[in-house]
């Protein structure tokens, strides 16, 4: 009946956000969500297995904070370009996790952070190629990716 309960809840929420909360829209939204989940089930996607899902809000807060901080840094780099040169660099990082969902979330987080961009993932040796706009301290970046994000993601997705 409900192959993807979390997806269904989010679809109903989205429907109610777009249309305003009434009983009629709740019923229509639920019907749309159920049919959409059946359509999704026929695609047979890989299902994520959540471990410590209660850490997700912590991840969200960390990402919002880091993105805001990185916004300020990149804005400073752009505005004073000319007076002081920044130091762009490519960075190869060896990852531990092989979980597809961890990798996808990590890619989205690192790319949406203005200071860093995820260029390429190599599934053979499990390394990722990053580009960093202003590399002041290479160890700090490695530590951020591996200890700050990857550990948390490995706890969330098992």
């Amino acid at each position: 009946m409900f192959p993807f309960p979390i997806l269904a809840v989010f679809l109903v929420l989205m429907w109610l956000l777009l249309n305003g909360f009434t009983l009629g829209h709740l019923i229509i939204g639920t019907m749309v969500a159920v049919f959409a989940c059946w359509a999704m089930a026929s695609l047979r996607p890989e299902k994520p297995r959540l471990g410590k899902w209660y850490l997700l809000p912590k991840l969200l807060g960390m990402v919002l904070y880091d993105v805001a901080k990185s916004n300020a840094q990149v804005a400073a780099v752009i505005l004073r370009s000319g007076s002081r040169r920044h130091n762009p660099a490519f960075l190869t990082i060896q990852l531990q996790t092989h979980n597809h969902f961890s990798l996808a979330v990590l890619a989205i987080v690192l790319t949406s952070t203005p200071g860093s961009a995820w260029l390429e993932y190599d599934s053979n040796d499990n390394t990722v190629l990053l580009h960093v706009l202003d590399l002041d301290d290479e160890a700090k970046w490695r530590d951020m990716v591996k200890n700050r994000y990857e550990k948390l993601l490995m706890e969330i997705f098992v």
């Binding site: 990149v74 949406s112 203005p114």
Partner: peptide, 18 residues
Amino acid sequence: RLPTFYERIHAPTLGTSW
């Protein structure tokens, strides 16, 4: 203003995040 493509890819993220 940024000189290479890989540097330029960082700049529009500013507008699309915050």
